[in-house]
Nucleic acid binder design. Structure first.
Lengths: 356, 356
DNA sequence: CCAAACGCCGTAAACGTTTACAGAGTGTGC
DNA sequence: GCACACTCTGTAAACGTTTACGGCGTTTGG
């Protein structure tokens, strides 16, 4: 692990100046003879360019940061899976931050943007505070926010439409004849929590169903918390016939608790999740879920960021990804045993789900 | 996005030298009066230290890279989930590389270590070639390898024990009375593929079962590939009564195909997966799986790397994480409907599965 | 009252690159 | 033979820090 050679070492060995070495290494016009000498010296010494020094001079690090609330969440991981290849193809490295949805940590990430160890940032905050907005306005590098920000915020923004998403789910449950539809939500002070809670009320109203606040239970966006919330809800409202869960993890918790309580899904209680993560397709019974396009949002965010990195100043853009209802066994009795294999049995290129 | 202030800007405004500014910012002994002036100037200007310049001088980037075969693979994500907080706590940022298990890409990552944009690397290669070993020997920064390397390789190394893992699974199937146990493996030229294939033969031998190569099918470590391999195997050996799958994704593919073929799991065919990913617990039916301790391996790797970063030269270490069989519904009929909720219903701190 | 000791500060060099500029050398045209 | 253009190369400055070193002014001790 001795100190590696620098362009100075090479210059000495090749008998040229460091400027010439730099020119050769960067492919700038140089006499063939010099090119050969420098290349030979570089090879012999096993030279590797120092990225830090280069960044200092060029003011570009070729790194981009992605700050998510929690590395453990499949929805963020779906974004990550899309962001990574887009950035890689453009020659950027990805730096990961997991903020645990703690506002102070997010502010910290925004602040550290000023340290210039990355060229840009993609961030997905659960809560958007005034401090967030201040820091965004003052940011010294391009930022893309995944999640809704207040109108007029001058920042590239990629949104899901969970309002329409919830409506899709409620309409679906209604069309199945369900009328006592419970809602298990995450904290209402989060952006998604607030949006999904409001959308639930709205969707019921549009269908002419009464809004009964007994049917709403606040938990948190985790499986165990979701399970506990569902248990409480079942105690209070034993006759409910459907559950709208604010994300897939809550829905998995609901399945756990319903099974333990001896309620059949979907016959007794239909369950809908949200985010359409891998877990929904794999769960038992498989979970009807509203896809909010995590993958698409990740991809769009990466592309917006790249565009801004390459073209500099331009008007902030807003991309909204439409939701999609994916019906599976947890709402549709007929879907209980899909006899078909969910992918092409002849092809050879499908790599769904990745390697191990 | 104008250029931010530097210590020179601060020095001018505070009427001191840049050396004093640096001293104040680093908390070195300085007269109170000077400290106040510098701090005031820094605050007014909204100064943020430039991490790149600092790294150039200090030769430390406070970044660590994690190179995995595929960001999409839950087993690597389980590692990532453990690595991230360990490094974060120690003040390191995490840079992610997804190599798609392409040897050239992995070599590239190893090579780019020389660029010194990270202080260290954790890598999990699927194949270990001579070129890997050469580059490892010549590496200019600490490296930890997750996965087996040849004896005598001087590198910190964290291993699973998939040999014992396969044995656990085969013994389990045998104890359930299964005698026609098929094996669906990934490519035998990968380290895990080779180990698991050999372990299968060995485990059968230890039980006095004949080894029938008809029962072995090579596919790849993906869900769809796994499904296709299982379909082929079923065609050839219709009377098999158990399947040992080399990872969970293959096992999910097996479940897909068995369901489509009308075979009951576990009554007709018992299925065991490997890696014990989130998908195993969530699948339908839930999947018995051999945990190879992805999480523990990730954590151990991060700790080994930190130790080496902090204490420099020392003998390379080897950590081996023992496997554990997690029995679920896909092998145990009685486990088909676990009536218990798999977590504490009273606690408030469990955050299994993360947020959304 | 002088020397030594000490605390604080500024100058300058260094980290490893890139690049503006000017100089050296060669070739061309008149 | 000279001016000019052109190609290639070297010198030096710059990016924004950290830090060794020496100088200056004040305090302390004899």
């Amino acid at each position: 692990m001795a100190d590696g050679p620098t362009i100075t070492t090479i210059a000495e060995r090749a008998g040229v100046s460091i400027a010439s070495v730099s020119r050769v290494l960067n492919g700038l016009p140089t006499r063939q003879d010099t090119v050969r000498k420098v290349m030979a010296a570089a090879d012999e010494l096993g030279y590797v360019r120092n990225a830090v020094a280069r960044s200092l001079k060029s003011r570009r690090t070729h790194q981009v940061a992605f700050a998510m609330a929690d590395v453990g969440n499949p929805a963020y991981l779906a974004m990550l899976r899309q962001i990574q290849p887009v950035l890689k193809a453009a020659g950027y490295r990805l730096v990961l931050h997991s903020t645990d949805a703690v506002v102070a940590d997010e502010i910290d990430v925004l602040h550290s943007l000023g340290e210039r160890y990355v060229d840009g940032l993609i961030m997905s905050p659960l809560r958007v505070t005034g401090q967030h907005l201040e820091m965004l306005a003052a940011a010294r590098a391009p930022v893309v926010i995944i999640g809704s920000v207040p109108e007029g915020t001058r920042v590239d923004n990629v949104r899901a439409d969970s309002r329409t998403g919830v409506k899709l789910a409620i309409d679906h449950l209604h069309s199945l004849g369900r009328r006592r539809i419970g809602m298990v939500n995450g904290p209402p002070d989060t952006v998604p929590g607030a949006a999904r809670g409001a959308a639930y009320v709205e969707a019921l109203g549009a269908l002419g169903l009464p809004y009964d606040e007994e049917l709403v239970q606040i938990g948190d966006f985790y499986r165990a918390e979701g399970g506990r919330a569902v248990a409480a809800l079942l105690d209070r409202v034993p006759d409910l016939d459907a559950l709208m869960c604010a994300n897939d993890l809550i829905a998995l918790g609901a399945l756990d608790v319903l099974r333990a309580a001896g309620r059949r899904v979907p016959q007794d209680v239909a369950v809908v999740g949200m985010d359409d993560t891998d877990l929904a397709a794999a769960s038992w019974p498989s979970l009807t879920s509203v896809s909010l396009g995590s993958a698409e949002r990740g991809k769009a965010a990466a592309e917006l960021l790249l565009d801004r990195l390459q073209h500099g100043e331009r008007e902030p853009r807003l991309v909204t990804v439409p939701p999609r209802l994916v019906v599976r066994a947890s709402t549709s009795a007929s879907a209980t045993g899909p006899a078909a294999v969910p992918y092409d049995m002849t092809g050879r290129t499908d790599k769904e789900g990745g390697r191990s």
